[in-house]
Design a protein around this nucleic acid. Structure first.
Length: 211
DNA sequence: AACTCGGGGCA
DNA sequence: TGCCCAGAGTT
């Protein structure tokens, strides 16, 4: 992929994944934070089945503190890793209340310090909830970046730097989500569906395999 | 860097 | 059945 292909790439992605612009599905940073913690290693679909009910009953961190861990586990039992997630969420809520006045801090370092919150969750909250441009490279983003020819990085941190250098800052959050969606729906790890992929014309991987 | 946690989705 | 998954914590 060359430099002048990048606008083409972004244009295609915007056509294919208009929903990746991340209008807040969740109504506030707290809901987003909890939802992202829950979504680790499981599908967002499943999370979306659990959260509306959960947030209706417990709208904020203070409400969660009235819950025992056991009770919260039962609320989210259908989600993978629910025991550790319940524990992390309760501890996170306590910290939010005691240290941040019941608000989600608009600060990356404060976020990653929360239990259950790692690099990726912190990035998603910063970008989606607070509008700070961010890219967090996961396996999907990394795989697609290599296939498309956006990077030749040896590890995800390098990929992250490459993407931030090559993509316009105002597109970071969008590109992050669009690439993940594309990785799940089309550019699969094992057998990518190149035959139905609109990105063919700018994709290094496709051009190489075509020969 | 490797390992563990674990339910659901999908072939 | 067996393999995979928008991850984080521990060693």
């Amino acid at each position: 992929m060359r430099k002048h292909d990048i606008p083409v790439l972004l244009h295609h992605l915007e056509d294919m994944y208009p929903d990746a612009n991340c209008e807040l599905v969740y109504r506030n940073p707290f809901e987003l934070l909890v939802a992202v913690i829950l979504s680790a290693q499981c599908t967002d679909k499943l999370v979306n089945e659990v959260t509306p009910d959960l947030f209706a009953k417990y709208p904020g961190p203070r409400d969660f503190l009235h819950l025992s861990q056991e009770k919260l586990e039962n609320e989210i039992r259908r989600i993978g890793l629910f025991r550790s997630k319940a524990k992390h969420i309760l501890e996170t809520c306590r910290i939010l209340v005691e240290k941040y006045g019941g608000e989600v801090p608009k600060d990356y370092d404060a976020l990653v310090a929360l239990p259950g919150v790692g690099r990726k969750t912190a990035n998603v909250v910063m970008s989606v909830a607070f509008g700070v441009p961010a890219i967090a490279v996961d396996t999907h983003v990394d795989r697609l970046s290599h296939r498309l020819g956006l990077t030749k990085a040896k590890n995800v941190l390098e990929t992250e730097k490459d993407l931030m250098n090559k993509l316009p800052k105002e597109k970071w959050t969008f590109a992050h989500h669009a690439l993940i969606l594309h990785g799940r729906r089309v550019c699969l790890a094992r057998s990518p569906k190149c035959h139905i992929c609109p990105l063919q014309e700018v994709c290094t991987y496709f051009k190489k395999n075509e020969k």
